[in-house]
Write a protein that binds this DNA or RNA. Structure first.
Lengths: 195, 195
DNA sequence: GCCTAAATAGCACGACCGTGCTGAAATTGT
DNA sequence: ACAATTTCAGCACGGTCGTGCTATTTAGGC
């Protein structure tokens, strides 16, 4: 059983890209089949329901995010360097990976008032992400590069706000200075927590 | 022509609330008719197309936002007080007005990759909002309360990031400390630009 | 190279979508 | 109060949605 697994993975990669553009709700089996060049029913057989398709799409997006953003960043030296690496990798992820920007940003706004397993899974993802930021910031505190009384959860909140502002400026407003403003905001934040 | 205008306005108010929960794309004429207790065709007759319905819904949301958030804030004293008033009013708007949070935050993430008149209208709204923040910040510079070299466009970017982080923490994560973290982030930002 | 099992296509279904048309009901101006 | 006009409901349409069932093609183990 190798062929099925391969096409299923390919389908999910298509699905991630579509979901980043139109959202999870508008991700339709028909358009996904067209993109994957398969019949609707042939594609559907891989997932027993649309909800399963959405769940697996979100989960594969999580795996890819861990692979291309979190894991590489964690190999940077402890402390502020690692915090910077995390932020830089997120910026690349949101800019270059998917044609619709960060799929989690879109999903967060779409699902925040629609209860269900998909929303629950997304909340877990987002909490993990915020925890990673806070934990990496904590290493900078331990290394003596951030002030000892730094509130790392607040730091994660602030960093997250900057990433959301970037997404807004870059994708909705098409502001050519989005990256510049984003980096400036991040530098200001770093300056405010440094020892 | 008074009756038609009244029901049309009532329909749009229902539409704003639904759009804040499920988005503009999933805002369906059938569910809107049910909510408004009208027939689908009777409701449809008020708007010649779904696109018109979406456009008018967004425009009425803009009017309401100006009425409940911007206009009252502009009557606060010039300077930092007015900046604070603007922020506080936004927080109330996003918390209490609609059952799905700020409809613009949802729309921004939904429409950022879907070209068309609706997206164009939203971009204009968001640009106006950022301009208002920057302009109000400029009064604080003029009053000597903010540092003379303050970059007010950057300030608007930063404030906007905080509001997006609030929406995420409050609506998606259901974090009971969302407001507290938001206010702290805002105070830190104010401290960094004060003269 | 067959035989079993997996992968995919074809087709049909009920439901809901946006959108017209047509006639009844309600509002409004005089 | 009547006439003219606006407002609304009923109904129908083609299209797409998610999802089953039934073949048919393909792939993998002996």
């Amino acid at each position: 059983m190798g062929k099925g697994e391969a096409t299923r993975a390919a389908i999910l990669d298509d699905a991630i890209d579509i979901a980043s553009k139109v959202g999870f709700g508008a991700l339709t089996i028909g358009m996904l089949a067209e993109q994957a060049e398969m019949s609707k029913s042939g594609l559907f057989a891989h997932f027993k329901s649309k909800e399963q398709l959405q769940l697996q799409t979100l989960d594969r997006a999580r795996e890819r995010f861990v692979d291309v953003a979190i894991r590489p960043a964690l190999s940077a030296p402890r402390g502020e360097a690692r915090v910077r690496a995390l932020f830089d990798h997120w910026l690349r992820w949101a800019s270059d990976t998917l044609s619709g920007g960060c799929v989690f940003v879109g999903a967060a706004a779409e699902l925040d008032d629609q209860p269900g397993p998909l929303r629950d899974a997304l909340v877990r993802n987002e909490q993990d992400w915020l925890d990673v930021i806070a934990q990496v910031a904590q290493t900078a505190v331990s290394e003596g590069e951030f002030a000892p009384d730094t509130d790392v959860v607040q730091f994660a909140f602030d960093v997250h706000g900057i990433t959301l502002a970037f997404h807004h400026a870059s994708r909705l407003m098409r502001d050519p200075r989005a990256t510049e403003r984003t980096r400036r905001a991040f530098e200001n934040l770093l300056a405010s927590v440094r020892a």
